[in-house]
């Protein structure tokens, strides 16, 4: 008896709540007139994409569009595809995606094209099915820069390893490819000890992998980490083993997160761009396209920089070095 009564009450309350839902989304008509530009990131609730969202929100006010950000709870390609497909059915004006898996998104992008929805990507220059990809760095230069910095600290010979977020993250692997090519040409005495390790989006795992690498390759002198949690995890392992400075760590990091490790000397150099600029640029380009304007060389993305158009890839150079001295000045 007791059980049934409660079940009924719950069901009724739930039903009333569902009926009342449309009330919460009020004012739909006014919003409709604005362009609906949605940014879909790899994963929600991590600092990198929280910062990107700030750019999306700023664009919403500056450009007077209805722009917002969505993303799966973990970096799962399938979930991301689902979100994009839902947006296509909803009929938004433009979708900007930071892909988890470039291939997995292709069918959804084709569908969007049929419906006339603009597709922009970020961190995926070779993406099929996009209108434009926007890069805030020159990816070749970005990859090489990591190796240049690695060599600056560890010397131009010795053993090193590479962390990536996962083996399907387009940009991490592109940087690694470019860096490895550069190393072959310029630093032939560098020796990569093992294939790239997919741990850079998990600090605990990065720490563990670093510990293991130190035992498997006692002569290890450096780690290049792509994915914002790889370098801090590696730095922590070095700290615990008392090896700070003996093994060089360079890579992509969130300044606020890496600050203690950079200052303690457990990590040497951070490299990235400000994701807020990415969020802003994506929305800005989407609006330009929706209003029928063409993107051309030399155009100015307000507050970010000058456009360097390369086919369907829009490059705006905004690479930043993070050092122990400037790490506190980034504001994120």
């Amino acid at each position: 008896m007791f059980n049934q009564k409660w079940l009924k009450v719950t069901l009724i309350v739930g039903f009333i709540f569902l009926l009342a839902l449309p009330l919460f989304g009020g004012g739909g008509k006014e919003v409709k007139e604005k362009y609906e530009i949605v940014t879909v990131v790899k994963i929600t609730g991590i600092p990198w994409f929280n910062r990107l969202e700030e750019g999306v929100k700023q664009a919403a006010t500056d450009l007077d569009v209805n722009s917002y950000q969505l993303g799966p709870a973990d970096a799962d390609p399938a979930q991301q595809v689902k979100i994009v497909e839902d947006l296509i059915s909803k009929g938004v004006d433009a979708i900007c995606v930071v892909p988890n898996d470039a291939k997995a998104l292709e069918p959804a992008f084709a569908k969007a094209k049929d419906k006339g929805i603009i597709i922009l990507t970020h961190e995926s220059p070779d993406q099929k099915g996009k209108d434009y990809d926007i890069e805030l760095i020159d990816n070749v230069e970005f990859g090489r820069h990591h190796w240049d910095k690695l060599v600056e600290f560890m010397g131009d010979s010795g053993e090193y390893a590479i962390f990536v977020g996962s083996l399907t993250v387009p940009l991490h692997n592109l940087w690694a490819d470019e860096g490895l090519k550069w190393a072959k040409e310029k630093y032939p005495n560098l020796k990569l000890v093992t294939k790239r390790i997919p741990c850079g989006e998990d600090q605990e795992l990065s720490k563990r992998k670093t510990m293991e690498l130190l035992k498997a390759y006692p002569n290890l002198k450096g780690i290049v980490g792509f994915g914002s949690l790889g370098p801090p995890g590696a730095a922590q392992a070095l700290k615990e083993k008392g090896l700070c400075g003996k093994v060089t760590i360079v890579g992509t990091v969130i300044p606020g997160h890496a600050a203690p490790y950079l200052k303690e000397g457990c990590m040497q150099w951070g490299i990235l761009w400000d994701p807020k600029d990415a969020g802003y640029s994506l929305t800005w380009v989407a609006k330009e396209l929706l209003e029928g304007r063409k993107i051309s060389d030399g155009m100015q993305v307000p507050g970010v920089g000058k456009v360097d158009l390369d086919g369907d890839v829009i490059k705006v150079d905004a690479m930043a070095d993070i050092t122990p001295d400037n790490v506190d000045g980034f504001g994120f």
Binding site: I43, T44, G45, I46, A73, D74, D202, Q203, E204, K207, P232, G233, Q236, H257
Partner: peptide, 16 residues
């Protein structure tokens, strides 16, 4: 214990 291990509290690091 996980917070002690990594000294970072990230809401998405355990679920999954």
């Amino acid at each position: 214990v996980q917070a002690l291990l990594v000294q970072t509290v990230a809401p998405n690091s355990i679920v999954g």
